[in-house]
């Protein structure tokens, strides 16, 4: 049980709470109070300054991954984990494909210090998601993350909304037959680096790649719906 919650929290790319004692807003926003008791590195102190955050790319941090993935094999756990993960994911974006809001409070330093191309472990905060835009044309470490990703400072709404987002229940694109490699169900633009979302302990478990050591993903997985803006009229 403990390990599955552990994996869950980690899998959502959450910067795990219980640091930043002055930040009450963050506490209010956090849905993961239980996690504070469970995490081995949840101490009420600020992030120590680090020049290069430790990468959590599987091959580099294999030990860490091994620890974090223990308990992940049970299929019941996996299902519940997936639904929690999907719900969290939906909560943080307007629709599948919209930029997620930032679920943690402002921290000192640049976003890309923690959100490196491989993601990073930042005890005592937790794991920072990898930056999936490092290979996007026109974007770089110098791009302004806050152009699209914004902090949330309240849970109130101004006026309720009737907008209902599309639900995304499938975790991969269609396959030609049961053993065929799944096709890629999303746009490549802004998500050119497959490993950012599909590998590492901060990735969502349901889309985590079981064979991340094979480096050329598009050898077997292909984009499913290449509508190159030929609009349906």
């Amino acid at each position: 049980m403990m390990s599955s919650s552990l994996t869950r929290s980690v899998s959502e790319g959450e910067l795990v709470t219980a640091s930043c004692p002055e930040s009450n807003e963050w506490r209010a926003l956090s849905h993961r109070r239980a996690w504070r008791k469970l995490t081995p590195f949840a101490m009420p102190q600020r992030v120590p300054p680090q020049t290069s955050p430790p990468s959590i790319r599987p091959r580099l941090r294999f030990g860490l991954v091994l620890v974090l993935l223990v308990g992940c094999s049970s299929s019941t756990d996996e299902t519940s984990m997936q639904s929690v993960s999907a719900a969290k994911r939906a909560e943080r974006r307007l629709f599948p494909g919209a930029p997620p809001v930032i679920p943690h409070p402002p921290l000192s330093g640049k976003c890309v210090t923690c959100h490196t191309p491989t993601g990073s472990a930042r005890p005592p905060l937790g794991l920072a998601l990898a930056n999936p835009h490092t290979k996007t044309p026109g974007m770089s470490d110098e791009s302004r993350c806050k152009q699209c990703h914004v902090f949330q400072t309240t849970k109130e709404v101004f006026v309720a909304s009737t907008f209902e987002s599309l639900r995304v229940d499938s975790v991969h694109g269609p396959r030609a037959f049961s053993q065929a490699p799944p096709t890629i169900p999303h746009q490549s633009f802004m998500r050119e680096d497959c490993s950012a979302c599909h590998t590492g302990p901060a990735s969502r478990p349901e889309i985590r790649c079981a064979h991340a050591d094979r480096s050329r993903c598009v050898q077997c997985h292909v984009f499913q719906n290449p509508s190159d803006s030929q609009f349906e009229k």
């Binding site: 746009q187 598009v218 050898q219 984009f223």
Partner: peptide, 20 residues
């Protein structure tokens, strides 16, 4: 796989989400 190398925009430009 050969045809859909990243960097060939006319082939890799796919939809935003599974349902689309």
């Amino acid at each position: 796989a050969l045809a859909t190398q990243i960097g060939q925009p006319e082939l890799v430009e796919a939809a935003g989400n599974p349902d689309d």
